[in-house]
């Protein structure tokens, strides 16, 4: 869709990807900064929420601090003709937050990715084993993250 956002729309994106001001009329404040009226800002945000341009609007909490201890990137080697069927099954699990099909690469034979969340690594292991049984696939790997080198929100239109 909006491959060609207007300059003021890009400016609005830049503001919304920062913190919303903690003042009584934050959208008026943002509007002033980007050359839009308060109504235009509110309308544009609603439009972007409706068409999916804005995925989420609100507070981003620190999950780790609120008890999501373990997460594992599970990677699965699924015959291409079964990828869609298995992808849907993995995606249906409550413990899976993200599920994608990706290409294989040199030294990397896995084509399905599912992010598994649990209280512990053991719990993630059990979830994966259960899913493996359910889809009848033995070739999968669980990659736990041992260190976080970077985690930030993307900042658009700053180049």
């Amino acid at each position: 869709m909006d491959k060609a956002l207007s300059d003021s729309e890009k400016a609005l994106v830049r503001h919304l990807q920062d913190d919303i001001p903690l003042s009584a009329r934050p959208f008026a404040e943002i509007g002033e900064a980007v050359g839009m009226s308060e109504d235009e800002v509110v309308e544009k945000i609603r439009e972007w929420q409706e068409n999916g341009t804005i995925r989420r609007f609100g507070a981003m909490v620190r999950h780790q601090r609120l008890g999501y201890r373990a997460n594992a990137m599970s990677a699965w080697d699924i015959p291409d003709e079964r990828a869609e069927e298995v992808g849907r099954i993995l995606a249906a699990a409550d413990e899976v937050s993200h599920c994608y099909q990706r290409p294989r690469a040199n030294g990397w034979s896995y084509n399905l990715f599912a992010m598994i969340h649990g209280a512990s690594e053991e719990e993630c292991d059990q979830v994966a084993a259960g899913l493996a049984g359910q889809v009848g696939v033995k070739s999968y790997a669980l990659l736990f993250s041992s260190r976080e080198f970077k985690k930030v929100s993307m900042r658009y239109f700053i180049e």
């Binding site: 060609a4 994106v13 919304l16 999916g52 341009t53 804005i54 909490v61 929100s153």
Partner: peptide
């Protein structure tokens, strides 16, 4: 406890 309060965008929709 809150990292940020704002919008999270779909990168594809922004091109």
């Amino acid at each position: 406890e809150i990292r940020r309060m704002g919008a999270s965008f779909d990168s594809r929709k922004l091109g």
